[in-house]
Nucleic acid binder design. Structure first.
Lengths: 199, 199, 199, 199
DNA sequence: CATGAATGAGGCTTCATTCAT
DNA sequence: TATGAATGAAGCCTCATTCAT
């Protein structure tokens, strides 16, 4: 009966999410155009509303999908590894999914940094697992004396993810010149761990 | 009738800029409403167009005014002072003007971090003096061995201003909880200079 | 697959008519929603179009069904009974079916009083038997001197049905306060036969 | 300065109300088209929204204007005149304004008879003075024994205005054939006062 | 210059209808 | 025959911009 249709429907939903991510990444929520999104997905305008209640709901779905992608790339590094190694692994996984889903990544980073206050709670909830993973690593690091313990790890985690977001922003803003995606993990971890002072 | 003197006209322009900064800070460029801006300035809608060619021109004027404010607060610290002292002084001046012109600051930070690509050149030009001042300090620091020299100072300067912007964002996003404006310079400079590793 | 028998199909049609009557009674033709009608009938949207060519066709089917219901309750009073008795019997039958099919009744009354001009002929044709029955009674009454003969019975019949419709509207509009369905036949017949002047 | 503009603005508002009355009279609230209304008024779509907050607000403004028109034609008949004379005078004034403002009248009658429940309170408030005038006349009539006193005058007043509305509806529905506007007051008053029984 | 009424392009959203399964 | 996903025309409303006073 509707077995194939269910699969098609899901495929359509994903096509809409992809198209929406592209549009939102380029223009932002307000300037994005629902009609263009639907056409880019090869569907009609009305179909968007069969899948998402509103433009904002579509946007949030994109953000949540981005969080899913981001969380999917869990690092495969032993807990015993030094903090900087584990952090680098996290960023390497991030870089990987950014390569695969650049549009989603751009939307997520922009939303995390400068999203509307009213959407903050939803975004926060979606992004919480990512932050928590960093906090965990830093907590382990602090226990082992690799991370200074004068500052709450939550604040350090926010700073670390902020630095990473910043780095992605600069990567995109510079047209990929600096930092390159390849260098990004090293650059960010080095800066985060030791700062600008000479070693 | 020439009922309005030159001084009044200039005052009107400033009132519009202030009102626009508030509106843009709260809603962003797209969602901001020209009519509400003019009313908040105590003027009529049409007057906006006697001062600014378009909504986007008004937005850019706000950004440029914000850069002027930011640049106005030059640090009064001798060049011989240690790098961290000079950086801290820069941030203290920044904090000062943020206290006075929070709306302008919010607009500027958001625009610098996640503004439209098409506006990037204009914003970059307006913000260049600020970046250059940091680069200069870091260049001096590198010469004196207080700053590592493996990384181009331009990149370090970008990172420093990025960290500061991040800190302001977190200040606003947390409702002023962390970091407080008072702590912000220390926090940012400490992080920038030495990172998360224990000293 | 011929999974649905003829009886089932007819039952579905009736369920749709009932659901449609409810929706049309509450919202009118324009504001009614085909999807909600089908869901209220426990069927899918598309099924509506297996039974009715369009929303308007469904609406007309509801009106016609209402006329059928209304006509079904023929009064069981001898022709020799006085006019007021026969008229009261008609209204009592009306009240009876209104009790059973309030939604259909509301749709019919609204359509008769203020329906679209373009649907007027169809509605008129459907309602003609009802009017004719009244006219017949009044004709008999005039012949017997119980009804004044200066006015064409067709006009009197229209007035009588109009008064009845008005009474139903006031019943619904007042939340059932006045006139009650029980009092309605007496009230209407009394007003119709003798007016507001004292007897 | 804006002296002329104020007058023009008011004229535009009236043009919109007239155009809206025509459109609403022909199609009803839902099917009416804001764009066509504005064009019929010789104005642009957006102008409607400078005067009325929404389509429904415009509709209610039309209804209220209709009530104003209706109330404006106060009968000039001495209080001592017999009830049927006074009632006839009221209807003659009604007929007069219906001749002048047919569209407004159609909207008002339809709304009073079969308007949306949610708009009922507003319409009731606007129409209250009209009803009250009838009730007053009937109260006087009852005091003088010209109107039967077994029924509350409020109910009689509702019936009278209902009969009048019905008569207008039939006038329009029959293409002006019956009753003619000229005959309408006599016909309605006669029916209301004495009913269908022979005198 | 300041004003604010008018403009009309643009966009989100609804929903009747179609059609492949 | 029943289903419900897709369609796209239609329409309300917003709001940046213009312009006569």
């Amino acid at each position: 009966m509707a077995r194939t249709t269910v699969a098609e429907r899901e495929a359509n939903r994903m096509r809409l999410l992809e198209a929406a991510a592209n549009e939102f990444a380029r223009k932002g929520l307000d300037a994005a155009n629902i009609n263009e999104i639907s056409l880019a997905a090869g569907l009609a305008k009305g179909t968007v509303y069969n899948h998402f209640a509103s433009k904002e709901a579509l946007f949030l779905a994109v953000v949540e999908q981005a969080c899913l992608y981001a969380a999917a790339g869990a690092e495969q590094v032993p807990e015993q590894a030094p903090t900087h190694t584990r952090l680098r692994a996290v960023l390497q996984a991030d870089v990987e999914w950014v390569r695969q889903n650049e549009a989603f990544a751009k939307v997520l980073v922009r939303e995390v940094l400068t999203g509307e206050e009213s959407r903050y709670p939803r975004v926060l909830a979606a992004a919480a697992p990512l932050i928590e993973r960093i906090a965990m690593i830093l907590r382990d690091g602090a226990r082992r004396g690799e991370v200074r313990s004068g500052v709450p790890v939550e604040q350090l985690a926010l700073t670390f993810t902020g630095l990473a977001d910043l780095a992605f922003l600069q990567h995109w803003g510079s047209g990929g010149l600096w930092p390159s995606l390849e260098d990004l993990p090293d650059t960010v971890v080095e800066m985060f761990m030791h700062g600008a002072a000479p070693r």
